[in-house]
Nucleic acid binder design. Structure first.
Lengths: 355, 355
DNA sequence: ATGAAAATTGACAACGTTGTCTCCAGAGGA
DNA sequence: TCCTCTGGAGACAACGTTGTCAATTTTCAT
């Protein structure tokens, strides 16, 4: 049993190969009756167009390149999961392209790989989505692309975001509502520009709770577990009365670092210290106690990104919707009411939800 | 500036396109002098053969499919990292193919996707590498493949392994050396057949320490964090005198579950209980205390697998070497001497190494 | 020097699509 | 009725490689 080609389909459906091609490509000028007939034969023969032939004959390669940073492989996997199905449905293939966002030759490498693979479009994941040079390169080469969660929310057409800022505000409010008045914040790696939003959200949240921003409670981290440890040390070395009773870290790895330091100091969590993270990576539910965090809807964003990219590739009209995917607060065991809560009277508490 | 084709190269090098083709494909029957000349022109024009055209004209697609289970995305990412470079160097592209190893339609899906993508070869990652049906399918379809870490060590040519068993034996010995006499073991998911090896290693280790296997100290887990929690409860509910003083979990996630339960019971780690895991996933160094574990050399195995697959595809002679990649014991903070150690006299202790 | 075999190279037809034209039938307007 | 327009379909030449086989050159034993 050999593989069916477009010719086989054409023969059985008694049409020309061009008509079959039209059906495959959803060209409208095919009579519904004819289209039906062709589709039936395609089904029957289990025909799949050859990507190679399509790439060669047409002007498209049906390849989408997924750019990711090697140090954020976890993120990439999530994105891939969301992208694959959408792309497969459209008969596109996805090739992963690992990069090092710190490499000075980044744009050269990307450019070379793009030429080599002839990808039709590119999906860019953080932290690469914030690299100005990369954006410029893609624009100059006229390569369609979509960025996932870049910092600047300017050009809607080519990006997908979450409502990080709002979610962080809500989470901060949540902590405030539990009576925390000294809420520490660990800022993320400034290279990953999305973190600025998270910090803004934290400030919004404080404001809503009527709490003042205390710069001594804000420290700069770099997204790694180790930097979380370091930041936690800084925050927790203060005398007990000045110490934060809650720490909000810009990502889960740093939050895990905070947990480690707290354990080391003999602090009970959440009784002595509430800890919350961001991202909801698998780690978050596998540390002790399980982290209260904000789930970044990576697969959903990725699917949306793929959708937008495909629309671009097909030259479909721009739709303006679907650029923001909502993140979700995940309440687990690492946060609780402050011991100081009496200070602000009766605060509404939020029941913790177990997985 | 348009993209260079084989014809451009041929013209500038004053040879036929076929000769250029031969140079690209490392066919030996090209005079060194001619080859040099062609290579220079290729370099100069920055020529890259079109994958589409190669796929169409030749019998190969230059595509390698990476089969992975969606629930083991972390593993897949690691493998991808190891595979990509090797493949890129050989002008192959890698497409990820997510599967659900529990789906009854697994083989159908794989078969369909393989036909659709026309991949030349397949790399199979655990737990898929243990699925008999999959292996049969690939063999019947005559698709070249390499499996990573399958259970049965039979046909060398198509698999890459680690020395799990030895490593587990060593780790167990290590614990024995620290005075532990009741060493619990959490067996991994029986679907991931590599775990049988780990269990054997544990038994080997016990034997070397002169310890008897106590079935009460061996419980069945399923690789998840939750199952680790459950198993830990079983192991630790015994009265203190009969409780294990060390627990060896078949993977890090379950070890993390053990940590959580231990914390919950107020057990100090490693003073009251040593915990060790397997895999050295990122999680391992981000829990508290950092897990002593065994590093599975995923990227190295993957690179080896890619190498083997490419050799198969090129029809190169079989070499027999490079099928086993060594795993490494990572000593961190979650293990230490047993409180019972006086019982067996002076045991050699192993200094813990920090990252 | 003389074939014969081996090494090296080239001509040309695939490969399975898409793009561009062209053709035809029927609808609609004068 | 005739002309024009439009929707629907086909013929055929790309696209950039590789495979096959034939042609040419080189090598080597006689």
């Amino acid at each position: 049993m050999t593989i069916a080609t477009i010719r086989d389909v054409a023969a059985q459906a008694r049409v020309s190969i061009k008509t079959v091609s039209r059906v495959i490509n959803n060209v409208k000028s095919v009579k519904p009756h004819t289209r039906e007939r062709v589709l039936r034969v395609i089904q029957k023969l289990d025909y799949h167009p050859s990507p190679s032939a399509r790439g060669l004959g047409g002007s498209r390669s049906y390849l989408i390149s997924l750019l990711y940073d090697v140090s954020c492989a976890y993120y990439a996997t999530g994105v891939l999961g969301g992208v694959l199905e959408t792309c497969r449905a459209a008969h596109y293939q996805v090739v992963m392209q690992p990069c090092d966002y710190k490499s000075p030759a980044l744009t050269d490498e990307v450019s070379r790989n793009l030429r080599q693979s002839r990808a039709d479009g590119v999906i860019v994941t953080p932290p690469l989505s914030d690299m100005k040079a990369l954006k410029t390169l893609l624009e100059e080469q006229n390569t369609p692309f979509v960025r996932i969660a870049p910092a600047e929310h300017a050009d809607d057409r080519r990006s997908v975001y979450t409502n990080d800022r709002e979610s962080c505000a809500k989470m901060t409010e949540q902590l405030g509502g539990l009576g925390h008045t000294r809420i520490g914040f660990i800022v993320g790696n400034p290279d990953h520009a999305a973190v600025a939003d998270r910090y803004q959200g934290y400030r919004d949240g404080l404001r809503k709770c009527g709490l003042a921003l205390d710069k001594k409670l804000v420290v700069q981290g770099y997204n790694s577990y180790d930097s979380g440890v370091e930041c936690a040390r800084k925050l927790l070395q203060a005398p007990a009365a000045k110490r934060p009773t809650a720490i909000f870290a810009s990502n889960d790895e740093m939050a895990a670092g905070v947990l480690a330091v707290a354990h080391g100091l003999g602090l009970a969590i959440p009784e002595d210290l509430s800890v919350v993270g961001f991202d909801d990576v698998p780690l978050a539910s596998q540390v002790w106690p399980a982290l209260t965090t904000i789930r970044q809807p990576i697969p959903a964003m990725a699917a949306q990104a793929a959708e937008l990219l495909l629309r671009q590739l097909r030259g479909e009209p721009y739709d303006r919707s679907g650029h923001v995917v909502e993140s979700a607060l995940m309440f687990r065991q690492s946060h609780g009411p402050s011991r100081d809560r009496s200070m602000i009277g009766r605060a509404r508490t939020q029941r913790r939800v177990s997985e």
